[in-house]
């Protein structure tokens, strides 16, 4: 019916585009079961994720709670809140700190869980594997407040275990938590520690999907364990490694607010104050939603560019996300 009408209304329509439409419809019909499967998810994303996204416009408005998101007046100039952020005397320091802490975490944090997963996979003693797997998984459930307490008992300058030991060996106590020299290492180290076992889970699952006949064949060929890890295990989890890495890149400007907010103090601000902690102190505590939103948008855009770029690179290795 509808196709008929289309034809009468546009008799000179190119046949090429028509067949295109037709083949598209045909493809759609062929995959209809898949689209039905996607439907609930798509509805979810639209309702809970995309519908609220109009909220980002408050980055360009002088948000007033009474007038609401759409009713608030536009900021003048439109980049006012971005400017406020850019003009903070601390802007470049904040950006540097965020990038540095985030990069350290990305670089140092990516490999330990992979190594632990490989070691667990190679472990021939079942009870040891099970115990280590469970133990390393536990720190994930300690909140940063608790971890801060643990760090204090270990690294406090007066009474911390490590410093007590150093002093007893005749050394000078070291201000691990209050000096700019050590603080970032503490941040990165404690994060790695917290996520060692948790991060390994996903790689272990990926390894479970590797075809065991590959290992058997390699064994027959006389390959060493290291060679098998290198040629079978690692390629088997490569796509997951790439996926996680690309997604982490998207959050490069989140250096870990919860952690830093609990752990930092005025003496380490020069190396520890990041975008999110600054936004927290400036934006949320002073009810400046627009500023918080502007910085959030800035972070998201950078993240998106990084993810798109990384995916393009990954595609060259045949491992793209989409």
């Amino acid at each position: 019916m509808r196709t008929g009408q289309l034809e009468t209304n546009a008799p000179r329509m190119q046949p090429a585009s028509q067949t295109k439409l037709q083949s598209a419809l045909k493809a759609f019909w062929r995959f209809r079961a898949f689209y039905v499967m996607l439907l609930p998810g798509v509805i979810y994303f639209i309702v809970f994720r995309y519908f609220p996204m109009y909220g980002v416009i408050i980055a360009f408005k002088d948000f007033s709670i009474m007038d609401g998101i759409t009713g608030s007046a536009w900021a003048d100039p439109w980049f006012k809140h971005f400017q406020a952020f850019y003009e903070s005397p601390y802007f470049s320091q904040l950006l540097t700190n965020t990038l540095l802490i985030s990069c350290y975490k990305l670089i140092w944090g990516t490999f330990p869980p992979i190594i632990v997963a490989i070691l667990l996979n190679e472990c021939r003693i079942r009870w040891l594997k099970s115990i280590v797997q469970t133990l390393t998984y536990m720190p994930h459930f300690l909140s940063w407040v608790i971890i801060f307490g643990i760090l204090l008992t270990l690294f406090s300058q007066n009474g911390g275990l490590v410093n007590r030991w150093i002093v007893e060996m005749g050394g000078e106590s070291i201000p691990f938590l209050t000096s700019t020299e050590y603080f970032r290492s503490i941040l990165v180290g404690s994060e790695i520690w917290q996520n060692l076992g948790w991060g390994a889970i996903i790689y272990l699952a990926a390894m479970a999907g590797i075809d065991p006949t590959l290992y058997e064949a390699a064994k027959v060929d006389g390959a060493s364990r290291m060679r098998m890890i290198w040629h079978i295990t690692l390629p088997g989890i490569r796509s997951i490694i790439v996926l996680l890495f690309v997604l982490k890149l998207g959050h490069l400007l989140d250096a870990g607010f919860d952690q830093i907010y609990i752990l930092y103090n005025i003496q380490v601000y020069p190396v520890a104050d990041i975008l999110d902690t600054w936004v927290y102190r400036t934006g949320l505590q002073q009810l400046n939603f627009s500023l918080a939103s502007a910085v959030g948008l800035f972070k998201s855009v950078i993240g998106l560019i990084l993810v798109l770029g990384a995916n393009r690179v990954a595609k060259k290795w045949g491992e793209s996300i989409w």
Binding site: F51, P52, M53, Y54, I57, G68, T70, G71
Partner: peptide, 10 residues
């Protein structure tokens, strides 16, 4: 959305 929520907010 903005249309819809605008009403809501008004």
């Amino acid at each position: 959305c903005s249309g819809g929520s605008g009403n809501g907010n008004n």
